[in-house]
Design a protein around this nucleic acid. Structure first.
Lengths: 226, 226
DNA sequence: GTCCAAGCGGACGATTGCGTCCACTTAAGA
DNA sequence: TCTTAAGTGGACGCAATCGTCCGCTTGGAC
């Protein structure tokens, strides 16, 4: 299977192409942070110092670009989940997880929207990793409940509720993060077991997998078009 | 000061104009609900069965239209606050208020965005009513805290946190409202006084007045433009 | 050094939304 | 009925963004 002769360098990609790809990603993060993930593609290209065509060659759709730009953050999320599962105290793990993801959402502007708008369900690779994430999270929840720290009526879908709500907040208020921290603290507090807790309304009938996909328009999260 | 002779009917507005205005408002609510408050003006006009010019005459800017479309909901919010202040049990009032506003946000799609994007600070009339709302709410909070039901470290600005977060959720998930109810229940729970409560991070340094305005772009809530 | 496919950039046509202008219609007072 | 200003509708000019096409440039194998 060795690469046939004449063709290119190391990984079969020309050096300048690889360089440009990286430049585009950096620019995309910056621009998305500044103007939201709906910012014109041309702006990203200009910022990266490349032509539009180059941008489109590397990332044929806005979605691909968004995904590429925030792949690292996504991985951090995945890692946080793994670590949470590995934590000795499952409640600690749970808390860590929520805080980490929310911190990411608040630090990397544009990421919240990207996170929610996320991947079309067709992207099988991502669908798979999402499924796994969901399963892992459910495990974490069950353990934390077994330990007595997480309220028994917490439902895994509540994570989606938290993330969407926090995303809305972070998007609306790209400030120093005080509001975000405040919200997270309130929520974590109400997730703890407490004899005084009154029963909750029924959980939302959604899986982590189902919602961002179905809801979000292909690019960005706001519906439009007549 | 009687209206001078020849001119028009009752309130100085021709009957057909008044009729059209109403039709536009109805259409706007429908379209905004369906496509978000960024929906093309022309779509609203078509839905209302009027020409664009007519729409623009009645509502020169998209903002004016949004404001007009949701004026009723805004008033309901204001009334809820008044009622909350009048309630015997201030905690009950507080709870009612949060639940009413959130219910509005979830029922009238498009309203959350309108609520947050709200008015440019120049609209003095609205600025004034907003100021009053803020003052009243602060009073309510103080009373509820004095009664011992609302945690002492609840800060009036936390209302903004709640509303923005809930707005994000409601916008992302225009479903049956299960998620919304769930979020509200969690939050209200964590607002109650509880000896086990751990200290919160400091409140966000924002007033009810400052945030939606400063943050929101003139139309819609998402920044853009390069 | 030579060669050429991979890579590049920008011009371009298409599409969509905005807001105005202007000629036609109509409500309603006399 | 007649008059006229208020009201109306849609065509139009303008601007922004999209994504493609095509001729030029260049990395890197030989």
């Amino acid at each position: 299977m060795a690469e046939s002769s004449r063709i290119t360098a190391r990984d079969g990609v020309r050096a300048d192409a690889r360089r440009n790809r990286e430049r585009v990603l950096v620019a995309a993060r910056a621009v998305f942070a500044e103007h939201g993930i709906d910012a014109p593609m041309a702006t990203v290209a200009r910022r990266a110092g490349v032509g539009v065509a180059t941008l489109y060659r590397h990332f044929p759709t806005r979605d691909a670009l968004v995904r590429g730009a925030f792949a690292q953050q996504m991985e951090t999320c995945a890692r946080a989940l793994t670590e949470a599962l590995a934590a000795v105290d499952p409640w600690q793990g749970f808390q860590q997880l929520v805080e980490t993801v929310c911190a990411l959402q608040r630090e990397e502007r544009g990421f919240p929207a990207a996170f929610v708008a996320a991947f079309p369900e067709t992207a099988s690779e991502h669908a798979r990793s999402r499924q796994r994430a969901e399963r892992d999270f459910t495990t974490l929840v069950r353990r934390a409940q077994a330990s007595g720290a997480l309220r028994a009526d917490f439902h895994p879908s509540d994570l989606a509720v938290v993330l969407l709500a926090h995303c809305g907040l972070a998007t609306a208020l790209p400030d120093d993060g005080a509001a975000s921290r405040r919200l997270v603290a309130y929520l974590l507090q109400s997730f703890r077991t407490d004899p005084a807790n009154k029963p909750l309304p029924p959980p939302a009938a959604l899986t982590l997998r189902s919602l961002p996909i179905a809801t979000a328009s292909p690019q960005g999260q706001r519906p439009s078009r007549a």
